[in-house]
Design a protein around this nucleic acid. Sequence first.
RNA 1: GCGGGCGUGGUGGAAUUGGUAGACACGCAAGACUUAAAAUCUUGUUCCUGUAUAGGAGUGCCGGUUCGAUUCCGGCCGCCCGCACCA
Length: 909
Amino acid sequence: MTEKYNPSDVEPRWQRVWRERDVFRAYDDSEKPKFYALEMFPYPSGRIHMGHVRNYAMGDVVARYKKAQGFEVLHPMGWDSFGMPAENAAIATDGHPKDWTYNNIDEMRAPMQRLGFALDWSREFATSDVAYYKTQQQIFLKFWEKGLVYRKTAKVNWDPVDNTVLANEQVIDGKGWRSGAVVEQRDMDQWFFKITNYAEDLLDGLKTLDRWPEKVRTMQANWIGKSEGLQMRFLFEPEDNERIADEILYPKWNEIDPNKENSSSGTLRSDGETIFGSYSGNGKADVEICSDDFFGGLQIFTTRPDTLYGASFLALSPDHPLVKELAKNNSSIENFRAECAKIGTSEEAIAQAPKLGLDTGLRVKHPFDKNITLPVWIANFVLMGYGTGAVFGCPAHDQRDLDFARKYDLPVTPVVLPDGKDAATYEVGDEAYTGEGKLFNSGFLNGLNKSKGIKAAIHKITEMDLGEGVTQYRLRDWGVSRQRYWGCPIPVIKCEDCGSVPVPEDQLPVELPYDINFDKPGNPLDRHPTWKTEGVTCPKCGKAAERETDTLDTFADSSWYFAAFGGSLDQDGNMDWDAASKWLPVDQYVGGVEHAVLHLLYARFFTRGLIDCGLLNVKNGEPFAGLFTQGMVTHAVFTNEDGEYVVPDQVIEKGNQLLQMGTNKIVTKGDIIKMSKSKKNTVDPEEIIKGYGADVARWFVLSDSPPERDVEWTDAGVNGAWNFQKKVWRAVEATTAQGGPLVVAEDASGEALELRKLAHRALEKITAGIEAFRFNTSVAQIYELTNALNKYKGQDAARLEALGILIRAIAPFMPHLAEECWSILMGNGLVYHAPWPEVDPAMLVDDTITLPLQVNGKRRSELNIAKDMPKDEIEKLALADEAVQRSIGDATVRKVIIVPGRIVNIVAK
RNA sequence: GCGGGCGUGGUGGAAUUGGUAGACACGCAAGACUUAAAAUCUUGUUCCUGUAUAGGAGUGCCGGUUCGAUUCCGGCCGCCCGCACCA
C-alpha cells in the first residue's frame, strides 16, 4: 500500500457514500439529546467564497463533533434568496430575478457539496420559494392580529439609488447599507413591525445569552438604548399660550374640521406627526406641542431632572412640529431650518457641526419657581428622532448645553457641587460637570445627591401633574415596506372604504407574477398590467380594490428560517411548528459580526412574536443559545505599476520582485484586507478544491488563526495544510499492525506507553479546543500527535490506538481523509458514526514529574522526581542542585516555596 | 467623545483559579537522500555576550501588589471594531 493520497478521487467517493446512506439526516423523533448547529445561510450570489468556506467549516466541526458525542444533530442549509442583487442582475442582463436566483442556487449547491459538509439537505429551501413566503405571509397576518403590525405615514429613509425605503438599522453613517448612497428623508405610507413592544424584553434577554460574544450583546444593548428619566411639560407664559392657540391650533383645527369651530377640546394632527391641543376659543387654550403623547405644555425628556434648577433655556429640534408651524409665518425661522438642513445627516460632521440656535421669542415657566421664565430656542443639536424632540438646557452640567449657552450668552447656573468644592466660589468653566455631587442652588432639592435628587424631582413633577417618570428607548419600530419586486409580497388589499384589509388565509399565497419588466425605475409590481387590480376585491365589502404592491424587507425572511428548518417546511408550505420548537433554540450559531444588530435583533424579535402568536414555544424567547462570530478571510491586495488591481493568481515572484504574469509589470503588495471582488484579492474556493481538495481548504481556514480573528490566506499556508494531509496519510500507510483503530493498548510500556500518554493528552486538549471554539489549539495538538506517530516505529496496539484517536480527532476537520483512513484500518463502518474517543485519565498523570527550580523567581534548573515526593524531600533535593547552589552563592536562603506539581522557588538574599 | 477588544520572536499564534514565556505552524539556515529539482527526513532558530559550559535581557511603555506577573491593580502610548450632539 504505497499509493499517493489523491483527494480528487477520495473526496467525491466518500461524498457519494454519505449521500447514498443518507447519514446526515436529522430525525425529529430521535431518542438522543438534540443539537442544532447552524451557520448563517448564504445569499445566492452565484459563487461561494472563502468566507463561506470558513463559516461552514466551523459549523461543520461542531456538528460532526457533536454527532460523535452522541447527539442527534440538526445541521441544515438553505438560501436567503430574495433581495436586490437579483433585480439588479436582471436589469443588467435583461433576464429575470427568479431565473438568476435559482440558477445561482444550483451553481452554489454543487461546490458546497464538494466541500463535504455534514448537512441535512433534505430540509433545504430558499426564502424565495412560494412555500416559504406563503408561510411568511401567514406569519405577517398573525402578527397583525396580535397587534405587532401596523401602518402609518412616517418619515422614512429613502435610498435614491436602490429606490426603496430602508430601516433605521440599515442606514449606516447616513448612507444606505447596500448602495452607499446618501439617504433622503421622505414621508411615506409604511408597514411597521412593532419591535418596540419587546424593547425591554429584548434588552433583558441579552442577560441570559451567556454564550454570545460580549461585544454583540453590548452592541444590541446600545442599539435598544434604554434610558430612564422624566418626561414633563413646561407651561407657556399666558400670552404665548394664546398666541399658539390662535395662530396655530385654531387655524389647523379649522382646516381639518371646520364644523368643529369653537369646540371645547380635541386633538389636531398634521404631517403624520401630532400636534395636540385643547382649544376652547378666545385664547383660553391649554396647549401642548410634541410628537408623541398628550399632555399640556411643551414636552421634554430628561435623564437629569435633578438639575432642573440649573435650567436656563428650552431647546427644540428644527424638525419639531411647533417649529414647523411657527416657520410658516416667520421667515427667519424658516431660514434657520434651511440652514440646519444644509449640514446633512451623516457621520461625525454632525457631531462636530457648530451649535446653531435661534430664539423663538416664546417663553415658558419654570415648574419649581414661578418667578423664573425660560426662553424657548431652536437648536440644531436637538434630534427630533429621540425623546420628544425638545430638551431643557442645563449648561452647567451638560457639555452641549454649555457650548450653546456660551455661544448665545445664556446664564450658566451650577446646581451640582462636586465633592471638595465650595458652594460660594464654585464656577463652571468650559467643561460641564456631569459627575456626582451634592445639589445646591436648588430649592427643595438642596443637599441631595444625584440619584436622590432625580427621584425627588420626578416625584414633585408627578405630584404637580406636569409629567412622570418614563423609560425611553432609542429603538424604533421596524419599517418593513420595500418598493421592490423580488421580495415577499405583503398580503394586504387596499380598499377605498375599508382601508387596509388582510388577504384571507385561503387566498394565500399572494404569489409574485413572473411577467414583469424593469424598463423603468421603481417597483414593477406597482405598474404591472393586471396583478395589482385584476380580479382584486375587498375581502370585507367586496368592492373592487387594489393589492399592496410593497414587499417585505428581506431581513424578515432571515428572521425565522431557523424555525423552518426545524419544522421541515415542505414545498406545499406545510411545516411542523412543534418540531421546530423541539429543535430550538439553535445550540450553536455561527456567522459574521456584521449581523450583530440587524439580523440577530430581528430574529430575536420574530421569535418572541411567533411565541406570542402561539406558533413557537422556545425558552426565554431566544432563538440562538450560542453565538459565535467568526473572523474574515483576508488576502493581500496587489497593484501593478499602472495602479490596477492584480489577481493573486497572476502575481509571480522573480528574484526580489513581484511581476504581473503576461505583462511583466512590477507589482506591489498592499494591505491585507477582506477578500473582495472589487479589490481583486480573492481566491476561488473551487480552484483550491480542484488543486488540493476540500479537506485542505477546510483545514487551512481553521488552522492558524483563532476563529474569531481574521485569517490571512497565503500560498504557504495552503501548502502547509497539503503537507499535513500527506503526513496523516503516511502515518496510516506505514501501519502494518492488525486489529483496527479501536484497539486499546492496555499493557503498553516504554515507548508505547509514552505514545499512549501523548495521544491521550493531545486528545484532551483537542476536545477542549473544539468545546471552546479554539480550533487553532486543537489543530496544534493534532500536529503533535501526527508527528509523534510518524516517529513511532512500533507496529503494535499503541500505534493503532493513537492512530484511532488521531483519525477520529481530524474527522470534524478533514472528514474525507478521516473516512479513507478509517476504512483502511477498520475495513467497514464510517468514522462519522464512530464515537468520540474517550480520554483515559490514567494516561494524563505521570509517576515522575519535572519540577522547575527557581531562585528568586528565575528558573535555574529542574528536578525529576516522583510525583508524590514529600515536600521536605523536594526541598532537600532542590537546595542540593548544583545550578541552584551556584545561583544562591553567598546569599542566605530565606524561604523555600514549594507548589506541589508546579514549581519550587527559593528566596535567597 | 462614549462603549468593546487587542498589543508576545522574522510571521500566524500558544501559555490565565498568577507558577519553566515562545507550544504548534510558516519562514529561514545547515545537513542527509538525489545527476538535478521537488518531496521527504535530521538538526538549529526570541535577542545580546560566548567556541562551549554559562550569563544577561525579554510579552507596547512606566509604576505597584507578590516568593513569583504575558496573566492582577494604577497611569500612559499605539492599533482595531462598534456607536456617535440619545438629552
